[in-house]
Amino acid sequence: MQEYTEKIFLELINNNKAIIYKVSKMYMDDAEDRRDLFQEIVMQLWKAYPGFKGNSKFTTWMYRVALNTALLFLKKETRKVDKTPLNENIDLADVNYSYDKEEKLAYLYKAVQELNSIEKALIFLFLENQSHKEIAQNLGITEVNARVKLSRTKEKLQFIIKKNGYEF
């Protein structure tokens, strides 16, 4: 039974692993921290899985657990802080199909590191095509508040990206 549940669960999260991957990349700049957060999210999803009753979509449930884990995650304190300038840090060597897209996203991820944890959650949910209402429900705030915060965060993000010498 346990093995069967694990198999179903693995299938579900492998189909939606982009969510975990993107959350990890948004919240952790360092590759090792990112890997740790990725594992932590997978583990927390598995721990929370018995509580998933199917009242909401699996992805909605995943957004919540992944974001909450990222917000609470304590990275290892001994690691060095990455202070490499933006353009030197973006490794595009393994990009084999869309330079433009990868470059854009690389700049986006780098800029997002300057946002606070709530702003990161807002931008993440927005990019995942969530409506203001859904963002508000996921974060536990009012719809008006979500709208205002998102608007401010988008402005801030634009400013950071521009400041970093990029525009799209």
């Binding site: 693995l10 993107k22 740790d36 997978v42 884990t69 304590l74 990019l127 995942e128």
Partner: peptide
């Protein structure tokens, strides 16, 4: 662009479900 599939995504394995130490 955000919603196009990523190249770096790795397969989630069974062993990842059983990490003992959580970091909250």
């Amino acid at each position: 662009d955000w919603n196009k599939p990523e190249t770096e995504e790795t397969e989630i394995l069974q062993s990842m479900l059983h990490i003992k130490e959580a970091h909250t």
